[in-house]
């Protein structure tokens, strides 16, 4: 099992009791999100849509890479990886 660290955006901290960073287990992003949901019930449905895909306005980063450039939910998450979940806003 690989343990990773997940940064939680403000709007999801109601699920994590206010924690901005939590630990989770999983070899891929999909497994990490499943594990997150086991500990913070309901959080997966905020990140994924009804068909189980990452929501249109959510950006997920494994390390510094947007997973849309990698393998999406199948992106590997080796032990110690830093994951960030961020609302998609941009404009600069």
């Amino acid at each position: 099992m690989s343990t990773v660290s997940v940064r939680i955006p403000t709007i999801l901290r109601t699920y994590t009791g206010g924690e901005s960073e939590v630990k989770a287990e999983g070899a891929t992003l999909r497994e990490v999100i499943t594990d997150l949901d086991a500990n913070y019930n309901g959080i997966a449905a905020r990140i994924l849509d009804d068909s189980g895909k990452i929501r249109r306005f959510v950006n997920v980063y494994v390390g510094e890479e947007d997973v849309r450039f990698a393998d999406g939910l199948d992106t590997p998450t080796p032990a110690g990886t830093q994951i960030s979940i961020i609302p998609a806003v941009a404009g600069g």
Binding site: P9, I11, T14, R46, D49, R55, R56, F57, V58, P87, A88, V89
Partner: peptide, 8 residues
């Protein structure tokens, strides 16, 4: 961002 769906 929307707490339900992350929409703007």
């Amino acid at each position: 961002a929307c707490e339900q769906c992350f929409g703007p």
